[in-house]
């Protein structure tokens, strides 16, 4: 077992040395891979930063409960107590119908409304601030509140919140879609570079097979080469996306300050770096494996 690990360490080392021996050509290759990785990673970072700010913004829409005109003090008390004990209600405020009328008069400048009307046409209302921002939760809460006794209507303006949420979701999905596309590109690029390498070492492979090399022995150096290529390009991509964030942040901060927000593009967290690293390595190895298998199948002796 120890010997087996030793052999693999040996392969890993010689694959790395092979890359370092041609720094220029390999750097170009690595940059190509790093850019392919950096696009979805940057979009992902943008989206997740946006999600952080929107969480910070006080954007929770309010739900207004209009009571039926015939509701009485006891009904109001009942609604009040159920709002008080509702787990999803952050806070609420009661607006008496007389206060509402007064506010309407003030705002519209029509002092005589109440005089023209025999009685106050406005209902009592509760203005509820819910806890969750997710539209689905809000919908649920709205339905629930409208079911309270003597509540005529539970209304809230969630369209803008929905739009914002939908846009963030869309951008997030776009990031994933890009990630899938570029993952495929990663496999293809590696497939191609490894295929070239295999062609360059065709004779060595043929002779090795004749004197007893197994398929896994033939594949091993190429898999390690691809793993290094993927790993190094992931590190480059980390640097690239951090640099992008660093470049964009001053302008972004200025823009955000207009809205009184402290906005910043974040860079990859250690765990995310690890994820990108492993993902890039696996995808690269997949490309190499496909190229090697193709060659081995095509050149099967006997």
């Amino acid at each position: 077992m120890k010997h087996y690990l030793y052999l693999h360490a040996q392969s890993a080392r010689s694959a790395l040395l092979k890359i370092l021996r041609q720094p220029f050509g390999n750097l170009l290759n690595l940059l190509m891979l790093a850019i392919a990785l950096a696009l979805p990673v940057s979009l992902y970072l943008g989206v997740s930063s946006l999600q952080q700010w929107t969480a910070k913004l006080n954007t929770t829409p309010q739900i207004t409960l209009f009571m039926e005109l015939s509701s009485e003090q006891a009904d109001l008390a009942a609604v009040e107590s159920s709002l008080k004990h509702h787990p999803r209600v952050a806070s609420f405020r009661f607006v008496h119908k007389d206060a509402a009328l007064k506010e309407l008069e003030q705002r519209s400048g029509l002092n005589a409304i109440s005089e023209g009307l025999g009685s106050n046409p406005l209902p009592h209302a509760f203005i509820v601030t819910p806890q969750a921002l997710e539209p689905a939760m809000l919908d649920l809460l709205q339905k629930e509140l409208s079911g309270l006794p003597m509540v005529e209507l539970a209304q809230f303006d969630a369209t803008w919140a929905r739009k914002l949420h939908a846009m963030i979701t869309l951008a997030g999905q776009l990031a994933w879609l890009l990630a899938v596309v570029f993952a495929l590109a990663m496999v293809l690029i590696n497939h191609n570079t490894i295929r070239m390498q295999i062609l360059a070492r065709q004779e060595e492979i043929a002779v090795s097979k004749l004197i007893g090399a197994t398929d896994s022995f033939i594949r091993r150096p190429f898999l390690y080469h691809a793993a290094w290529q993927g790993g190094l390009s992931a590190l480059l991509c980390w640097g690239l996306s951090s640099w992008l964030a660093y470049q964009a942040n001053p302008a972004l901060a200025e823009f955000a300050s207009l809205y009184g927000i402290d906005a910043q593009l974040r860079s990859l967290q250690p765990l995310e770096v690890l994820g990108v690293l492993l993902g890039a390595m696996l995808l690269s190895m997949l490309g190499a494996r496909l190229a090697a298998d193709h060659h081995l199948r095509k050149n099967q002796p006997a």
Binding site: L210, I211, G212, A213, T214, D215, A302
Partner: peptide
């Protein structure tokens, strides 16, 4: 099986007619 043949070859030494030396 074809996958077992390499291990047989590892116990055989072959002097090829065309040598099959690697010149690199």
């Amino acid at each position: 099986r074809a996958s077992q043949l390499p291990y047989v070859r590892q116990h055989i030494g072959v002097v090829f007619q065309d040598h099959k030396i690697l010149f690199d």
